[in-house]
Nucleic acid binder design. Structure first.
Lengths: 205, 205
DNA sequence: GTCTATAATTCGATAGAC
DNA sequence: GTCTATCGAATTATAGAC
């Protein structure tokens, strides 16, 4: 009577394709990705990809949506905690993003590039405004800054200080002569540093 | 006897094509750009594009190189000034980058995306390491931080705080409900704010 | 559901007239 | 130098056998 529980989540062909698509699309972007490469990565045939998802674009939309979700989920989880201090929220954002980005370093560049390429496609993307502007987090920043400074500056800084090093990592690792492990170590240091820096900004003046 | 001076720099067909290519490539990236679009943007024919530049890739390499130059020139101009203070250097970097990025907001996302897509292509890209690691700027940061913190953190922060808002602007303008003019105003405010924030980081502890 | 083979389309590049 | 017309390669999508 009970519905059969799907135990092996990733072994279905559909999931294999989606996972392969996520990997290849996120690394190369939409235009530079060939459906053949996705099929190969998934270990299946090209025709099968079109059997499950009707087109390259349909498949891309799914991957893109899931990637954006990952990106926004970090913020959404933190923004409306009522009981935590502002500093604790900043710590949580930095910590969670660094975890996410160590695992998926291509994520931000992919998301931001594709949004810039097709802004109209993500125009509707629900009320993202409300997520930030009406959040408890945003209220806390406004209180602390006391109208001395636009709260958006602080939001930009929190996200930017966390995300930017990953976006620039190819350049940074070359410029700084860093091995991957050294880069990772730097990012781990930032879990503590970013909240301190943001604190300094909030206490200014 | 004297070489003829080229007065109308931009009116030559070759320049028109390069300018169109810069615009389209920078907006869409290499893979998503069609040579036909460049030709149309330049107001010339597709065949002519291949007459002047042998291939799409050759044309791209030129544009890419010029874009990277723009990006690095800002740093290069500031890094080895002997007579300015660290704070003055930070002011100069923020100020010059904000000027550059207000005019060419697509620049950073383009450069960073293409580097990530083809790291080997930019591997040789001269001794970028030396430009930073042996600069007067880097020495000044090391002195001020007194080994309490890796100087690369500060470099990341200076560039990141300046560049990231432009990278994320499509999302930011939506999230913050900003018009272009309001966004520009925020960026202008950051010319003063970024040096203050960096100062705060340097004086910590 | 999965495959092979192929149709249909897109796009970079070239031939050749002017 | 500049154009029109077209070739050829690459790639998405589909038809049809199993």
């Amino acid at each position: 009577m009970a519905k059969k529980v799907k135990i092996e989540i990733d072994s279905s062909t559909e999931e294999k394709i989606k996972e392969a698509a996520r990997k290849v699309f996120t690394k190369n972007g939409f235009a530079a990705t060939r459906t053949r490469d996705i099929a190969e990565e998934a270990g299946i045939n090209l025709a099968l990809l079109n059997y499950y998802f009707r087109s390259k674009e349909k498949l891309f939309d799914i991957v893109m949506h899931e990637n954006m979700q990952k990106f926004l989920m970090v913020l959404h989880g933190v923004f409306n905690m009522e009981s935590t201090s502002l500093t604790e929220k900043v710590e949580a954002i930095a910590d969670n993003y660094i975890n996410l980005l160590k695992e998926h370093p291509d994520l931000p560049l992919f998301v931001l590039s594709e949004i810039r390429a097709n802004p109209e496609k993500f125009a509707l993307s629900m009320g993202i405004k409300k997520i930030l502007l009406e959040s408890h987090f945003y209220k806390q920043i406004k209180e602390r800054t006391k109208a001395k400074i636009n709260p958006l500056h602080l939001v930009m800084n929190i996200i930017g200080l966390t995300v930017f090093p990953f976006i620039a990592s190819p350049l940074l690792q070359r410029v700084g002569n860093l091995k991957q492990s050294e880069f990772d170590k730097l990012m781990d240091e930032r879990r503590k540093l970013i909240p301190e820096w943001i604190d300094g900004m909030l206490n200014k003046r």
